[in-house]
Computed example of a mutant assay.
Amino acid sequence: MIKKRKIWLFIPLIFVLSFAFGVFAQEGGPPYTVGLSNGPFTHSWRVQMIESVQQEFEFYKEQGLVDKLIIQNAGPDVNTQIAQIRNLISSDVDLLLINPNSSTALNPVMEEAQEAGITVVVYDMPIDNEKVLDVFMNQDWWMAPLTEWFCEKLGGKGNIVYISGIADQPGNIERDLSAEKVLAKYPDIKVLAKANGNWDQAAAQQVMSDLLASFPQIDGVLTQDGMSLGIIRAFEAAGREIPVITGETQIAFIKKWKEMKDSTGFDTVGIVNPPGYVNNALGIGLRLLQGKKLKDEVLVNGHIIYMKPNLIVDNNNIDEIYEQYKDWADSYYVNSWYTQEELDALFE
């Protein structure tokens, strides 16, 4: 199918922004070709994210809205991702979904895509580009309550370590800033060290083992998703008592959490960050291609749509969550995405 592109010589800024967001329907109409540019693909959350978008793509394909999905995984390298986005532009995609490796470095290539008439939607990570629609979990809404629970569970004092995610990823940077902001309210909590576990169980277990060798007293471990189980295994291997640790919603940890709660009264909290939220960006992008317009009140700063965590797991509901997900693969996460009705509600 030959896709037609819009060409203009001069349009006022408001119309340029509208076109960038895909407010004007694609002239060729459906079915649309979708390109997805992903960064790191080394941890299970990203694997499940890709599986989720492939699943939802089939739903839209049955509706006749899409015909082809092209996925490229760049790893953490920015230049590789730029080159792959140019490949997707050359592939004549109609909708380009980007999980960015940088908050700024992709701006020129995203502009190239928009100039080619492609609707661009960034997801999962914050970017510094007011001309591109950005759909992502507000990381402060995710990290701040987790850190608050942690500090309160410690009684506002103690020696802790912080196991962060992948250092240069925009979402991880936002989480770090959120954690630091909350910790600043608790002067009697001393951060002994910060290390990067890269959202990976094995990596987190290794860095935690190194920290255990360096610090004889660790009262708590603040961490993010994909790493809690590895941290607990490090304490178990060292024969050390498990301190206060923030939890998560990866299935392997859900199973461990349930086991430890039943045997020792272990208490933690986990906030979902669903891999399936990529499908919110997909659904929004396809609606934009059809000429639908987002409600003004949905947009923050004119180009951001914040996704909210829709589930907090704690000792009050862990039994229920365990029963719901106990047959899922250990590497998966508690998952969901917006319904078609919830996506429709974002539009006029």
Rank of each mutant, 00 (worst) to 15 (best):
S214N: 12
L192E: 03
K181S: 08
S209T: 12
S228P: 04
A203E: 14
Y186F: 10
S209K: 09
P216G: 04
A202P: 08
L229E: 11
Q205C: 12
D219W: 00
A204H: 11
A238R: 06
Q217I: 03
A213R: 13
I242K: 07
S214I: 06
G197I: 07
I232S: 09
I231E: 06
R233S: 11
P187M: 05
L212F: 01
I218G: 04
D225C: 14
G220S: 04
S214Y: 06
F215E: 01
K190G: 10
E174I: 01
L192N: 04
A203L: 12
E236R: 14
K185G: 02
A204S: 15
G197N: 07
L183S: 02
L177H: 02
Q217F: 00
L177S: 07
A179Y: 01
A238L: 01
R175C: 09
Q205N: 14
E180M: 02
Q201V: 14
Q224Y: 11
K190C: 10
V182Y: 06
G230Q: 10
A234I: 06
A193G: 10
D225F: 13
D200M: 08
M227R: 03
Q224P: 00
L212P: 00
D188H: 02
I189E: 02
A213G: 14
I189N: 01
G226K: 14
S178A: 15
Q205G: 12
N196Y: 14
E241S: 14
E180D: 11
V221P: 00
V221N: 02
P187Q: 05
A234Y: 08
V207I: 13
D188P: 05
D176L: 01
R175P: 03
R175I: 04
Q206G: 11
D225W: 13
L192A: 01
G197T: 05
S228E: 10
V221H: 08
L211T: 03
A195W: 01
L222N: 03
N198F: 15
R233K: 15
Q206V: 15
V207F: 11
D200K: 07
G197Y: 02
S209G: 15
E236K: 15
I242P: 06
D176M: 01
Q201I: 14
V191R: 08
I231D: 07
V191I: 14
L222C: 05
V191E: 13
L183G: 04
A179H: 03
R240A: 13
L192M: 10
L229V: 07
E180W: 00
G239D: 11
Q217H: 08
S228T: 14
M227G: 01
G226Q: 13
P216I: 10
I189P: 00
A195C: 03
L229N: 11
G197W: 05
D176E: 09
P187I: 03
D210E: 11
P243K: 09
F215K: 02
L192F: 08
L192P: 03
R233V: 02
A203Q: 15
I242V: 15
